[in-house]
Design a protein around this nucleic acid. Structure first.
Length: 829
RNA sequence: GCGCGAGUGGCGGAAUAGGUAGACGCGAGGGACUUAAAAUCCCUUGAAUGAAUAAUUCGUGCGGGUUCGAUUCCCGCCUUGCGCACCA
């Protein structure tokens, strides 16, 4: 009997699959339903993949493999997130140019991914740093600019002094840079933005409908952070100035006892007067000098009175104007009306600085008196609004303000526009030419891509520009101010008044921009005429299944935003890119921590595979270890377990191959177990319950072993069906061993296309039922009865059961509960 | 602080329209085969009492509640993971 030797058969089949194009999808084939699934494209940073990454790609691999076997035109693409900070930093670390560093590291990635046996369509591989790809990233930029969704703005931006670049809000995590983890600072810079806030409402409203991991949906919603409220204008006493505040509680307006401005608010400088002026300036200086992290670390309220007063529009009350750093410059209007009685922060502030606390909403009686009451209730001390419910009064007060032009309802978002320019070399150049005295000019499509020039020293110098600014020949360019066409400055100037000398934008696009549309390029990867063919998009979009373990906010928001934009242009058939998006859990190191190279606790999949277990055992264990979305610690002893399981499958099949052609076998039981397992595994894969799918297959194998002990294997139809079905449902998990055994059974084609077993529901219906008999809710007996036994007979049978009688004694049950087909509960008083 | 999860044997985890708790695997113990070991196969394995593979009791983070019956539903806590965090 042949022994299971993974390293031999895995290498063999990987080579054959590649030769035969087993996993290549015909993107133009319309004869079958499509299935489009993949995991987030890998970013290459040199370390190679660890056990957790491998698992991430396996989820989509299994989903797509199953569909491919079920007859779908299934596409599992692969590509590289090649542009951006991570790759550039990696290049700096290894002392090579980014493209070279990337390409070399990529070889290692490819070797690892291939070794794991993923069913990627390698013939359609893409890279975001390929000019044929970023040409279209630039084209999208130009389209956004044309539709006023890309713009330049000067304002204080997050800046990382380690990575020498600005960062988007989404890339600042707790005041620290997403790449290097160092604290970020603010720099005042003119930067490019995408107007993602224009889609805030649409995206928020659509989020609930998405069939995504709930956690990710929640994170998206929180990030967008919609607040319904109002803007209210407070006139400044003895001044023309007006302070506009944003509030979600206009119903508490009568309780406003001061107005607070953020230190960044420009009005602060104008309002501070007299002997307060110096104090205010000192305070503002100190606040602005502090890093954002420092400002947030201490919740202790600080502030300074400006010496000026504002007028509450509802009652004409004179309230002091303060400067306080708990008011954020970048949110709302940078000014708030403070209602200490009904806002915890205002309450703390008022307590500290001894400002009035005016209650305007009745508290419920059981509410304890300390602190601010932030709930709803009847209004008091609120003039003509007294007695109204706070929730209703919100609208009424806003209406009242609107009629006097002193306020209006307003929706505010936490999400800001997406900052996409980077002062770094390794990215797609922003396709813009600047000409003195004109709006920025988008480079004409026919001159795209604006290629990233090769430079010797690409490392950032810390200034406000990328190193591209130093390449004079590249920056200076002839541009047609009407068409956006460009000609290299070293050529002679074209004829015509529209041609002038301009200067290229020297910032590059954030890597996130490049990865915000790759799922569309996958479906038309070699198109030289357009970014993708809208007809193909109609066929392939949306993505049926998308998996990731990172980028729960930024990447997904950006992709959704762009997709909605493309939808409006008629380039894609749906506004949402990902029909189903799942966020898988992490595999933790055996020490319970996240795997990381610095901790030295990384498990290398290659080592496990090369130690003789092979890819299939590793793959099966990766699925078996834990449910999809839960973190689980790696246990090195798990792989031998799944290896044993695959060995049992191997040996069982070998026995079948050697078995006699004729004879008797326990066919009915074999068929029943097999059909039940097919059903279970098929639906488990559909529901992404891969761990229980593996368990079900193990159970089937255990059952078949028991059956063959009782009666040796014969090549009956039942045994043939059992063995072939087992291999087919196991194939997405363990593609190599199943392919090998499939061929050993005499099949000439691959198991991985168009082979999925069907189950017969009628075989699964039992003709008897097991009735659980409980006495006072505790299991006391089991009855095996005919399926359609009437209720009275079931109850009667329960009452005379030997064990039940023991428990009942001479008492009669006070109550008998019968759940048809399941259980009888006899209740004693 | 707020939001979203999760807490079940020695370990990873099964099972929730409320109805046999602990599937499957790891680990552990025992046995078969073998000169021996590995591999393989078979059996046992939640805890307590018990000679028992007789029986009973306890048992799904803690405290209550609803119910004939709660791992599942409700209320109040504790622990822990992730995200956000002075967002007015």
């Amino acid at each position: 009997m042949k022994r299971y030797n993974p390293s031999e058969i895995e290498a063999k089949w990987q080579q054959i699959w590649e030769q035969d194009g087993t996993y290549e999808a015909d993107l133009h084939d319309t004869s079958r339903p499509k299935y489009y699934g993949f995991s987030m494209l890998p970013g290459i940073t040199g370390a190679g993949i660890h056990i957790g990454h491998g698992r991430t790609y396996q989820f989509s691999d299994i989903k797509v493999r199953a569909k491919r076997q079920q007859g779908y035109n299934a596409y599992h693409p692969i590509g590289w997130d090649s542009f951006g900070l991570p790759v550039e930093n990696y290049a700096i670390k290894v002392g090579k140019k980014p493209r070279q560093a990337h390409d070399e590291a990529k070889e290692n990635f490819i070797r690892q991914l291939k070794r794991l046996g993923f069913s990627f369509d390698w013939s359609k591989e893409i890279s975001t740093a390929d000019p044929a790809y970023y040409k279209w990233t630039q084209w999208i930029f130009a389209k956004l600019y044309e539709h006023d969704l890309a713009y330049q703005k000067e304002q204080p931006q997050w800046w990382c002094e380690t990575d020498n670049t600005v960062l988007a809000n989404e890339q600042v995590e707790g005041g620290k840079c997403w790449r290097c983890g160092n604290e970020v600072v603010k720099r005042n810079l003119k930067q490019w933005f995408f107007r993602i806030t224009a889609y805030a409402d649409e995206m928020l409203d659509a989020t609930d409908e998405l069939n995504w991991t709930d956690m990710v949906k929640t994170m998206q919603k929180n990030w967008i952070g919609r607040s319904l409220g109002a803007e209210v204008e407070f006139a400044v006493e003895d001044s023309e100035e007006v302070i506009t505040v944003f509030t979600t509680r206009p119903d508490t307006l009568f309780g406003a006892s001061y107005v607070a401005l953020a230190p960044e608010n420009p009005l602060v400088q104008e309002l501070a007067v007299g002997d307060q002026r110096e104090k205010v300036e000192t305070y503002v200086q100190a606040a602005l000098a502090k890093s954002e992290v420092e400002r947030q670390e201490s919740k202790e309220k600080t502030g300074v009175f400006t010496g000026r007063y504002a007028i509450n529009p509802v009652n004409g009350a004179k309230v002091p104007i303060w400067v306080a750093d708990y008011v954020l410059g970048g949110y709302g209007t940078g000014a708030v009306m403070a209602v200490p009685a009904h806002d915890e922060r205002d309450y703390e502030f008022a307590k500290k600085f001894d400002l009035p606390i005016i209650q305007v909403v009745e508290k419920p009686e059981n509410e304890d008196d300390a602190g601010a009451y932030t709930g709803e209730g009847e209004l008091v001390n609120s003039g003509r609004f007294d007695g109204r419910r706070s929730a209703l009064a919100r609208e009424e007060i806003v209406t009242w303000l609107e009629s006097r032009n002193m306020g209006r309802s307003k929706t505010t978002y936490k999400m800001r526009d997406w900052l996409i320019s980077r002062q770094r070399y390794w990215g797609a150049p922003i396709p813009i030419v600047h000409v003195e005295g004109r709006e920025p000019i988008a480079v004409n499509e026919k001159n795209l891509p604006v290629e990233l020039p090769d430079v010797d020293d690409f490392k950032p110098k810390g200034g406000n520009t990328s190193v591209l600014a130093e390449i004079d020949d590249w920056v200076r360019v002839w541009v047609n101010v009407e068409t956006g066409e460009t000609v290299n400055i070293t050529e002679s100037k074209p004829d015509g008044d529209a041609w002038v000398e301009g200067q290229r934008e020297t910032d590059t696009l954030d890597g996130y921009a490049c990865s915000s549309w790759y799922f569309l390029r996958y479906i038309d990867p070699f198109n030289g005429e357009q970014a993708w063919d809208p007809e193909l998009a109609k066929k392939w979009m949306p993505v049926d299944y998308y998996n990731g373990a990172d980028h729960a906010v930024a990447h997904l928001l950006y992709s959704r935003f762009w997709m909605r934009f493309f939808y409006k242009l008629g380039l894609v058939p749906t506004p949402e890119p990902f029909k189903r998006m799942m966020y898988n859990g992490y595999i933790m190191a055996p020490d319970g921590n996240k795997m990381s190279k610095s901790k030295g606790n990384v498990i290398d999949p290659m080592e496990i595979m090369d130690s003789g277990y092979g890819a299939d055992s590793l793959r099966v264990y990766e699925m078996f270890i834990a449910p999809y979305d839960m973190d689980a610690p790696w246990d090195t002893r798990g792989v031998p377990g799944t290896y044993r399981f695959l060995n049992r499958v191997w040996n069982l099949t070998q026995e079948y191959v050697a078995a006699p052609e004729t004879g008797a076998a326990n066919d009915a039981e074999i068929l029943k177990a097999t059909h039940a397992t097919i059903k279970k595994v098929t639906s488990d894969i559909e529901d992404e319950k891969f761990n229980t799918a593996v368990a079900a297959m193990m159970e089937l194998v255990n059952t078949l072993y028991k059956l063959k002990e009782a009666q040796p294997i014969v090549k009956t139809e039942a045994w043939t069906f059992a063995i072939e079905s087992l291999l087919q449902i196991l194939a997405p998990f363990a593609p190599h061993i199943t392919e090998e055994l499939w061929h050993e059974l005499g099949h000439g084609d691959t198991i991985h296309r168009d082979h999925w077993p069907k189950w017969d529901e009628s075989l699964l219906v039992a003709d008897t039922m097991t009735i659980i008999v409980q006495v006072n809710g505790k299991l006391r007996a089991k009855l095996e009865l005919a399926k359609d036994t009437p209720a009275e007979e079931v109850e009667a049978a329960a009452l005379v059961d030997e064990k039940v009688v023991q428990f009942l004694g001479d008492k009669k049950p006070a109550k008998v509960i019968y759940i048809p087909g399941r259980l009888v509960n006899l209740v004693l008083k």
